[in-house]
Simulated assay, not measured.
Amino acid sequence: MGDYTFFFYGTLMAPAILHRIIHGSSTPEVWQKSLIISRPALLPGYRRYRVHNADYPALTPSDSADSPPVLGTIVTGITEGDIYRLDRFEGSEYEKCSVRVKVLRGAAQTKCGEEGDGSLQHALEKTANAGCDESAFREMEEVEAMTYVWKDGKERLDVDQEWDYEHFKKEKMQWWVEADESEL
């Protein structure tokens, strides 16, 4: 099992895409699914933006202390080989950084690719939308993780609009799952 923990906030929140990148298939074997565990998580102090003319988002440190935390997924069980493939997928627009994310204490973990607890996801969305209220974070534990932070300049970002995961799932994800390797 891998020793690394990552926070994903964009296309890699989708298990089919994550498995495609690290295992080579959007429908991996059962044993491959069992290697990585995911939970919903929040990342305070950052913002997620749309990248112009792209389906994927960018994560940057927030300029505002009162911006809501970024809703994403914390994934454990990542191996060094997985990191190599993730680095190639993310490319030169991003750099790997260590961050502190918040997860609900005792939150149920799911094998990546299984449906998680919708009520847990709803609770995190409610907390994220409430802003950075410290009382909302009291029941959460802090976990260190790696993530990919945008380094390619804000001129390529739509800073007036956050990237929308639900829109991505409905409108774009099918192409990402079925695209040829050279297209990703």
Results as ranks from 00 to 15, higher is better:
4 Y>R: 02
145 A>P: 02
83 I>D: 00
87 D>Y: 02
174 Q>G: 09
19 H>D: 06
136 A>Y: 14
20 R>P: 01
158 D>T: 02
16 A>W: 03
34 S>E: 12
54 A>K: 14
135 S>V: 08
63 D>E: 14
65 A>T: 10
69 P>A: 05
5 T>I: 09
13 M>L: 05
112 C>V: 11
152 D>F: 11
125 E>Q: 11
90 E>T: 10
122 H>V: 09
62 S>A: 15
66 D>F: 10
52 H>V: 15
81 G>A: 08
126 K>N: 14
128 A>V: 04
60 T>Q: 02
93 E>K: 11
9 Y>F: 13
12 L>M: 10
84 Y>I: 00
174 Q>F: 09
119 S>V: 15
124 L>F: 13
159 V>Q: 14
90 E>H: 13
151 K>A: 14
34 S>W: 09
84 Y>E: 00
72 G>L: 10
77 G>H: 10
12 L>G: 01
148 Y>F: 10
128 A>E: 01
56 Y>D: 08
180 D>S: 10
183 E>Q: 13
74 I>E: 01
123 A>K: 12
162 E>V: 05
111 K>D: 05
141 E>G: 13
173 M>P: 03
86 L>I: 08
103 V>S: 07
42 L>P: 01
101 V>P: 02
42 L>C: 06
157 L>T: 03
183 E>F: 07
127 T>C: 15
103 V>M: 05
128 A>P: 03
63 D>W: 07
152 D>T: 08
43 L>V: 09
107 A>H: 11
135 S>H: 14
169 K>F: 06
46 Y>W: 09
77 G>A: 05
47 R>G: 01
50 R>L: 04
11 T>C: 07
170 K>L: 15
7 F>Y: 08
162 E>D: 12
136 A>R: 13
57 P>Q: 12
118 G>S: 11
168 F>C: 12
98 S>F: 12
125 E>H: 03
52 H>F: 10
75 V>S: 01
30 V>K: 13
82 D>I: 00
153 G>E: 07
44 P>T: 12
93 E>N: 15
57 P>I: 04
62 S>I: 09
88 R>H: 05
21 I>N: 00
58 A>D: 03
48 R>V: 14
165 Y>N: 06
168 F>T: 11
166 E>Y: 13
51 V>P: 06
151 K>G: 14
19 H>K: 07
152 D>Q: 10
126 K>T: 13
42 L>V: 11
40 P>K: 10
91 G>K: 09
47 R>S: 11
7 F>S: 02
140 M>Q: 10
182 S>C: 13
31 W>L: 15
85 R>L: 01
72 G>K: 03
29 E>V: 12
87 D>W: 00
143 V>S: 05
176 W>R: 04
171 E>R: 14
96 K>A: 00
135 S>Q: 15
45 G>H: 00
6 F>A: 01
52 H>Q: 15
128 A>K: 04
46 Y>N: 05
